[in-house]
């Protein structure tokens, strides 16, 4: 498990990235809604988002909706790629006999640690 991307390989950030990956490609979600989906405190979510932003995995933009300032969040292209690579690496670590046969063969064995 040591080769796994350390930015994503933490429970909270994995949940953040997984939730953002479920959005449509060109979509952004507001901070309060993301917070509600993840049931995290605002402070906690901010900390993890900053780490993800520093790694270039999420894009955070501030804008206005009417007069209310809004923070919008999306997974960057790089973040999406990192999440896909992480998911594949996790699958490869699991016992191949437990895998769905359709997913076999595409899991690279070089990820094994």
């Amino acid at each position: 498990m040591s080769d796994l991307d350390p930015v994503i390989h933490a429970q909270a950030r994995l949940r953040v990235v997984a939730a953002l990956s479920a959005l449509g490609d060109g979509d952004r979600i507001t901070f309060p809604r993301l917070q509600e989906l993840l049931a995290m405190t605002a402070g906690n979510l901010s900390v993890h988002l900053r780490k993800l932003e520093d790694a270039g995995y999420v894009e955070i933009s501030k804008t206005h909706r009417g007069r209310t300032p809004t923070t919008l969040i999306r997974l960057s292209r790089r973040g999406r790629l990192a999440f896909e690579e992480y998911t594949e690496a996790i699958r490869a670590l699991l016992d191949p006999t437990q895998l769905d046969p359709t997913q076999l063969g595409s899991t690279p064995s070089k990820e094994q640690s």
Binding site: G26, P32, L72
Partner: peptide, 9 residues
């Protein structure tokens, strides 16, 4: 969908 903006909206 209220709190999601972008292509879907």
């Amino acid at each position: 969908y209220g709190q999601v903006t972008g292509d879907s909206a």
